[in-house]
Nucleic acid binder design. Structure first.
Lengths: 200, 200
DNA sequence: ACCTGAACACCGTTCAAGT
DNA sequence: ACCTGAACACCGTTCAAGT
């Protein structure tokens, strides 16, 4: 009952198990950063000097592995989202949480992949997601009331649009990325608004 | 020398070859519409009652197969793009070509997949792409001069942003899709503009 | 010319057998 | 408890052998 399934960073592991686990994580992280995207359970096992079954023992599915690799980035995003909620100005809060979501995805493509997945399997990732959505919800409610956001936008819309923007901005220079983010931020403003902003 | 490689709709085929080819296309089209995305060469061959080698003879790679399936949609998009160029008003032309690009991708997810691919393999798809880019280029040049488009946007940006929007809008209701498109259209307008548009 | 399908090197995933 | 790796059912792709 008190057992926690699919925990990304379990504790109380046997010494060799913990060693294997960190080996696997290290190898997988290097593989995704090198190769771009595709990672294979068998290849990971081989590179980590471990049986395939050991990889599956720690990460019963590829989704779990991906979520585990992105857990730290996701936690960081949640921390930043909480700070955005505390922002006094509704418009600033909105821009900040969207900018943060975008930046975090650009820093860690693995996080972008996880945020794009239809559902989560790790318990802590589920928690992070709930927390993030709660922050987004609070901010866009305020933003709507302050008339700095289109009234038809939901937290899920923000998630989807950020995912789409991450796809569009993949492999582009920071300046281009900033332009794309600007396009989204401007487009999210309610209709019939005077937009006059200083160039970056 | 006069031989055309990787043609999507070759002519002058032997009778049985042509029959096989249309069988393969038919099966593949049904598979992508049913299953969503993944299609397997071996599965196609089996479902089409044909050897695997025959599938490879007609479509040397999956990319070629995908491009062949999307060729008609792509041609339609190019026709619409040409009409958008003829639009008198620069702003109307811009909105029209973007809307058309989005709508065509929504109608045929296979076209969206092809438009998202980093490079093309079929000769006619390359032609379509060049033509489409030419249309986009002409329109955004005009749009910039008319001050109805951010000056830093290139044709490739339009392509990327439309791809991203297609990802974001996947599986959503038409009304939501229209909202997302609105967000992009608004966001593409130059800064310091009064935006006052009637609700859809 | 075109077609066939066994064969190859890979996947993800499982599970009896070991320690 | 945990690990191993052969084994299974799949991939994409090739190519000798058939008609």
């Amino acid at each position: 009952m008190a057992e926690q399934l699919l925990l990304a960073n379990p504790t109380n592991l046997r010494a060799d198990s913990a060693r294997n686990r960190s080996q696997i994580v290290e190898v997988a992280r290097r593989m995704v950063s090198e190769d771009g995207s595709l990672l294979s359970m068998n290849a990971i096992a081989h590179a980590a000097g471990v049986g395939v079954g050991t990889v599956y023992r720690h990460f019963p599915t590829i989704q779990v592995l991906l979520e585990s690799l992105a857990a730290d980035s996701f936690a960081k995003l949640v921390v930043e989202a909480r700070q955005a909620v505390l922002e006094a100005d509704a418009s600033v809060a909105l821009e900040r949480i969207i900018r943060t979501g975008f930046d975090c995805q650009m820093e860690d493509p693995g996080l972008a992949a996880v945020l794009a997945s239809p559902s989560f399997e790790c318990a802590d990732i589920l928690d992070y997601s709930a927390e993030l959505f709660s922050c987004i919800g609070a901010i866009i409610t305020r933003a709507r009331q302050a008339n700095v956001l289109r009234p038809d936008i939901t937290p899920d819309d923000i998630r989807r649009l950020l995912n789409g923007l991450a796809v569009a901005a993949k492999d582009l220079a920071p300046r281009k990325r900033a332009q794309y983010l600007d396009v989204l931020l401007l487009g999210l403003r309610p209709e019939s608004t005077i937009t006059s902003r200083s160039a970056a």
